[in-house]
């Protein structure tokens, strides 16, 4: 490969990661949201393989392999084991904000991420950092947004995991020398998040009969009636 091809492909993958984050916001079906999360994780892995090749870094190769194992294989498999099949066919009708408005909001979050990271990039000539840092932060923001706007438990979980993907996409550019033990521990942690939140979702489904976060509004503060 010519020298700058991996970098160019990484930029392509950055664009696709952002698009898949938008797609997660715009998809109603639970299954669809999870599918876009898996696609996003594959793109993240592809980027770390590409950069691992370009910089001959064993760290990035391992990180790519860990991402595939944890986010493409183990998490979807574990969620499928934990939750009944009809769970995935659900469509979410009542979103807090409708989809076109959501997309406009996430677009403005992306622009905000670009402006926030601009001062940090002053004097940085590495094209990979210049691309990955803003896109990664945008991924975190869009994930956080879908976490807040979603009402169903599993899309909310996907939002958390998408935030993690965003952080890692920036991470492969700015912290590629991070010790492997830390990367491995983070991967185990991500799987644990998915399993524990999946378990909790199942218990909520069995006890309360719904997993719409909107139904969980029993606990709140009301003013005291002074007597």
């Amino acid at each position: 490969m010519p020298a700058n091809v991996p970098e160019a492909l990484n930029t392509l993958s950055a664009g696709l990661i952002l698009i898949s984050a938008f797609a997660m916001v715009a998809t109603r079906q639970v299954q669809g949201v999870l599918r876009f999360f898996v696609i996003q994780s594959m793109l993240l892995a592809a980027s770390s393989f590409l950069l691992g090749y370009a910089r001959s870094s064993i760290h990035l190769w391992t990180l790519g392999a860990i991402t595939v194992a944890a986010k493409v294989v183990v998490i979807p498999w574990a969620l499928r084991r934990l939750l009944p099949a009809d769970f995935y066919e659900r469509r979410e009708i009542s979103q807090a904000v409708n989809i076109p408005a959501s997309l406009l909001l996430t677009l403005s979050l992306t622009v905000a991420a670009e402006f926030i990271t601009r001062p940090l990039l002053a004097g940085v000539s590495d094209i990979v950092i210049r691309v990955n840092l803003p896109i990664g932060l945008a991924g975190v923001f869009v994930g956080a947004y879908s976490l807040i706007a979603r009402r169903e438990a599993i899309p909310q979980l996907a939002g958390i995991l998408a935030m993690e993907n965003g952080a890692f996409f920036a991470g492969i550019a700015i912290a590629p020398e991070l010790p492997l033990i830390a990367e491995l521990a983070v991967a185990v942690d991500v799987v644990l998040i998915a399993v524990i939140v999946g378990l909790l979702t199942r218990t909520i489904q069995e006890t309360i009969g719904t997993t719409e976060a909107a139904a969980l509004t029993e606990l709140k503060e009301e003013p005291t009636v002074w007597r």
Binding site: Q156, M163, A167, V197, L200, T203, T207, A213, L216, T217
Partner: peptide, 25 residues
């Protein structure tokens, strides 16, 4: 495993785990 306890656990999980990727960044 009461509905109140599960609601509390859910809010706790979402809000505190959401903080994690931000801190990771």
């Amino acid at each position: 495993n009461t509905s109140n306890a599960l609601e509390a656990a859910w809010k706790f999980a979402v809000l505190t785990i959401m903080g994690a990727p931000i801190a990771l960044f």
